[in-house]
Amino acid sequence: MTSEPVALAPSRRRAWLQGALSFAVLLGAGYLARRHWAVLHTGVLRLAVADQGWLLIAAGSAAATWVGAALSQQGAVLRRLPRGRLLAAQFAATAAGHLLPAGVGAGAVNLRFLTRCGLPAGRAVAALAVKAAAGVVVRGALIAVLASLCPGVLRVPRVSVGGVAGVVAVALVLAGVPVWRRCRPALAVVAADIRVLHGRPARAAALWGGSFAFVALHALVLVAVTRAVSLPLAPARVALLYLAASGAAALLPTPGGLGSLDAALAFALTTAGAPGAAAASVVLGYRLLTVWLPLLPGLVVLGVLVRRGAL
Score class of each variant (00 low, 15 high):
P10W: 01
L17T: 09
Q18V: 05
S22A: 15
V25I: 07
L26E: 06
G28W: 01
G28E: 01
H36D: 12
H41D: 03
T42I: 02
L45Q: 10
R46Q: 13
V49P: 02
D51C: 03
Q52H: 06
Q52C: 12
G53L: 04
A59G: 08
A64L: 12
W66E: 03
S72T: 07
V77C: 05
L81M: 10
P82D: 00
A89P: 00
Q90L: 06
F91H: 05
A92R: 04
A92C: 04
T94K: 07
A95I: 01
A95H: 03
G97K: 06
V104W: 13
A106Q: 14
V109F: 03
T115I: 13
R116V: 07
C117A: 07
G118L: 01
A124F: 01
V125H: 10
A126F: 01
A129Q: 07
V130K: 12
L142S: 11
I143T: 11
A147Y: 03
P151R: 00
L154Q: 08
L154A: 12
P157W: 15
G166C: 06
V168T: 11
V168K: 14
A169M: 11
V173Y: 06
V179F: 08
R181N: 11
D193R: 14
G199T: 08
P201R: 12
A202C: 03
L207Q: 01
G210E: 03
S211E: 05
F212L: 15
F212Q: 06
F214G: 10
A219F: 05
A219D: 14
L222G: 06
L222E: 15
V223H: 05
S230R: 00
A234P: 01
V238Q: 02
L241P: 12
L241T: 08
P255I: 01
G256C: 06
L261F: 12
A264S: 11
F267I: 12
L269A: 02
A277N: 09
A278M: 05
Y286R: 05
V291F: 06
V291M: 13
W292A: 08
L296D: 04
G303Q: 04
A310K: 01
L311P: 02
